[in-house]
């Protein structure tokens, strides 16, 4: 039995023409040129800086930018870069691509923080196809937890400044790397270790007791309530201001340490 044809018979030339138009349309839609991408990222950063500067200026004019009672933690760009890089390199495989994040750049300026993570993307099927990718983002909110000041890098865009191929079409790999990053930002996000600012913040001051002598004191502690009050990236430094409230003296159950005998006869 003869099967009915659903489509009319067309020539090979017509088919190729339609395919070519489709490909062009695809590339035109997805393959936004890199310069435009960079301008968009730059504009976003500038807008963020302008907004932060306006807010800080208003707060400063009203003398409420920073309280004199806040404890200041200051980390410069090199310090934050070092702690991020201490957790690098990090590597993961996404489909056929191997992503190796190996270097960080950090900038704190005008109320805005920027983190650039340099990564190398390699096509595992053709290892000589390599693209250098830059993930761009910033630090998330800083929190105090367990006495540590931690945050994480939030990636919000990528840049593909350089592609090396074994003579193949570079734009294809560029687009692939771009798409890879775009579709897997969350997975790549997890690749970046949390950022711990190397400062330990105490949440209590422990006071050992005294015992076994004529002067007895129960062990106690002064609790401290620490919370991040404001973060200001400025002039190459990240200023983290902590609101530290000193709580009331309270006894603890630790064993007292012995004390020397202080008694004198009259």
């Amino acid at each position: 039995m003869h099967r009915a044809r659903c489509f009319p018979r067309v020539s090979r030339r017509a088919a190729l023409a339609v395919t070519a138009v489709g490909l062009l349309a695809m590339l035109g839609g997805c393959g936004e040129d890199l310069a435009a991408g960079r301008r968009r990222v730059e504009a976003r950063v500038l807008a963020r800086q302008i907004e932060n500067l306006r807010e800080m200026k208003t707060a400063l004019s009203a003398k409420r930018l920073v309280s004199e009672q806040w404890l200041a933690i200051v980390a410069d760009e090199a310090a934050v870069r070092s702690v991020i890089e201490a957790g690098l390199p990090q590597e993961m495989t996404v489909g056929r691509f191997r992503v190796l994040v190996h270097r960080a750049e950090v900038s704190f300026s005008s109320g805005s923080n920027r983190v650039r993570l340099n990564a190398r993307v390699t096509d595992t099927r053709s290892p000589d196809r390599v693209a250098d990718v830059v993930y761009q983002g910033g630090l998330d909110d800083i929190v105090v937890s367990g006495g540590k000041l931690t945050t994480r890098v939030l990636i919000d865009d990528i840049d593909v400044p350089q592609v090396q191929t074994g003579g193949d079409d570079a734009s294809l790999l560029t687009m692939a790397a771009d798409q890879l990053a775009g579709q897997n930002l969350e997975r790549l996000q997890a690749l970046i270790p949390p950022v711990a600012i190397p400062v330990k913040v105490e949440e209590r001051i422990a006071v050992p007791g005294l015992g076994d002598g004529p002067v007895e004191v129960d062990p106690a502690e002064v609790p401290l309530n620490v919370k991040v009050a404001r973060v200001i990236p400025l002039s190459g430094r990240l200023w983290v201001f902590l609101d530290v409230s000193v709580g009331a003296w309270r006894k603890t159950s630790a064993l007292p340490s012995p004390s020397p005998s202080p008694v004198k006869k009259p």
Binding site: F7, R9, V10, S11, R12, A14, A15, L16, A17, V18, T19, A20, V21, G22, L23, L24, A25, M26, L27, G28, G29
Partner: peptide, 17 residues
Amino acid sequence: KRAPLIGGAVLLVLGTL
């Protein structure tokens, strides 16, 4: 000969979208 045509049409639609 129909396969390239279908593929091209799909690409055309996707590209336009």
